[in-house]
Design a protein around this nucleic acid. Sequence first.
RNA 1: GCCGGGGUGGGGUAGUGGGCAUCCUUGGGGACUGUGGAUCCCCGGACCCGGGUUCAAUUCCCGGUCCCGGCCCCA
Length: 426
Amino acid sequence: MKFESLRGFRDIYPEDAEPRENMFNTAKRVAHSFGFQIIDFPSLEPLDLYRIKSGDELVSQTFSFVDKGGREVTMIPEATPSVVRMLTSKKDLQKPVRWFSLPKIWRYEEPQSGRLREHVQFNADLFGPDTPDADAELIGMAATILDSLGLSGNYEIRMNHRGIMEKILKSMDVQDTSRAFSVIDRFRKLGRDEFIGALDAAGISGKSAELISKLAATRVESVYLKQAISEIVPLTESLSDDLDRVAKTMEMISLFTDSMVVIDFSVVRGLSYYTGIVFEAFDVKGELRSILGGGRYNGLSTLLSGQEIPAVGFGMGDVVLELLLRRNGLWGRQAAIDGYYICMASDAVEMYSMRVAAEVRKRGKTAVRDSGGRKLAAQLRAASSAGLTKSIIIGTREMETESLTIKDMSSGKQSTISYSDFMDTI
RNA sequence: GCCGGGGUGGGGUAGUGGGCAUCCUUGGGGACUGUGGAUCCCCGGACCCGGGUUCAAUUCCCGGUCCCGGCCCCA
């Protein structure tokens, strides 16, 4: 019987697990520096938590089952509902609340580039303030994480605003805006004629379709935002205010990163609960799907609990991010670890070598003990591949004189010093 | 769920309707009874699974499965 990991699931060996851990640690460090605190929540939730919010399409793409008590449960397909539940069920939280998490999430779909059935998602949300500052801080944090990973200039942030899009579509007499959004969301994938055709199927045709097509193709920096819009639709006061807010947010974000921040009217994100700004980060070469995405969702807490709490958040999966880091040569293992590989030149020194290892570890350093039973050359070979900076060679000579031979693995130089002197120096 | 392309040791590969399935690398050991990353030698390890055709299938056919890519969808 041969066992393999399930379709879309991964076994991750040290050569990938370590760069991956560095990646997560960087995200954590940056989040803490922005005042975000880590939370965690169950991997299994009631299926209804997602039905309420997202409907059958999402539910059909979950790993769900009926538990022994007859409850419909699912491996979580996203973090946000759980986070919002935590927020709304603890009534005495002082706002703003800044939370992040690193849950594993699952989706039952066909795996493809940048998308698997199980992945880790860095998720961050800021609850309370509904301001450009809050939006900018959150998006700025996302950018800072990417920058801290060494990706500055290799990605760009594309933003849009659901409210603005709603107003523009309404001004064109588009009734079913959510259907229009789902078409607009596919703009970059479709040819021009296909796009017009899809709009037509959504009940939009003629001049409106032409204008939407022009709008979706628009990608500008903040300073040209109003001008670009005014060429497509008349600027009402309300629309103008929204545009000012977005422009201000974008200017703020540019304080955090040198990467491009643009308005892109084709970025709408499929999720129906977004109410304000929406954004995604893409690699500049345009080879990968989005690196991260999020937006403002002020209505979700009302839907789940009746409490009105403004929110802005984003999620970033580890799969696309890993691909991007690899393509930029940023997926290497770390340099040699400061530590000791302990080799035994004789089986008689077992106890002594174990004592050395224990003492080294008590001093906070890494000590890896060869299990012995093979010749020294083989042990030193193992020491090389273990990636530690130094080896300690212990044989009967060392044991009889209560000393140790320390070998520097990069230079090959070695010297023998007394046990007590060695322990004092580390 | 649908569509296309793939699957030979841990990784990368050669090849074939018939003989002990090729080479490189990795791993283990040795040459060197206390010194690694060089060299040489030895050893271990593979035709995705099932069915069909055939005297004979790793090779041809069908189905499944997994991988890669795409659609749908995107949390």
